[in-house]
Amino acid sequence: NNDALSPAIRRLLAEHNLDASAIKGTGVGGRLTREDVEKWLAKA
């Protein structure tokens, strides 16, 4: 759900042209964290 994304995470996803639904969030309530996105980028 994009409503649950912080502005910083939205920007990070946009910079790398990523789809938030492709990344499993580990934050509160399954929210994406910066670490989630960075780990996903490291694997890609």
Results as ranks from 00 to 15, higher is better:
N1P: 12
N2M: 13
N2A: 13
D3F: 03
D3T: 10
A4R: 14
A4S: 12
L5G: 03
L5K: 02
L5H: 06
L5R: 04
L5T: 06
L5Q: 06
S6T: 14
S6N: 07
S6F: 05
S6W: 10
P7G: 07
P7W: 04
A8L: 12
A8M: 12
A8Q: 10
A8F: 12
A8D: 14
I9K: 00
I9T: 05
R10F: 05
R10P: 00
R10S: 05
R10N: 05
R10D: 04
R11F: 09
L12H: 06
L12R: 04
L12Y: 08
L12D: 01
L13T: 00
L13N: 00
L13I: 06
L13R: 00
L13G: 00
A14K: 13
E15L: 15
E15K: 15
E15M: 15
H16L: 08
H16K: 03
H16D: 00
L18H: 03
L18C: 03
L18Y: 05
L18N: 02
L18P: 02
D19K: 08
D19W: 06
D19G: 05
D19F: 05
D19Q: 09
A20K: 05
A20T: 06
A20R: 06
A20G: 08
A20N: 04
S21W: 09
S21F: 10
A22F: 12
A22K: 14
A22W: 15
A22T: 11
A22G: 08
A22N: 11
I23E: 01
I23F: 05
I23W: 04
I23Q: 02
K24D: 06
K24Y: 07
G25M: 03
T26K: 03
T26V: 03
G27Q: 02
G27M: 03
G27R: 02
V28Q: 12
V28K: 11
V28I: 13
G29T: 04
G29N: 13
G30V: 02
G30W: 00
G30T: 03
G30Q: 05
R31N: 06
R31H: 07
R31M: 13
R31T: 14
L32F: 05
T33M: 05
T33I: 03
R34N: 08
R34G: 05
R34H: 08
R34V: 15
E35A: 12
E35R: 12
E35M: 09
D36A: 01
D36Q: 02
D36M: 02
V37I: 15
V37F: 05
E38P: 00
E38G: 04
E38M: 15
E38T: 09
K39E: 13
K39S: 12
K39G: 09
W40T: 07
W40G: 03
W40R: 05
L41H: 07
L41W: 08
A42G: 07
A42I: 10
K43G: 10
K43P: 04
K43E: 12
K43D: 10
K43Y: 14
A44V: 14
A44I: 15
A44K: 09
A44R: 09
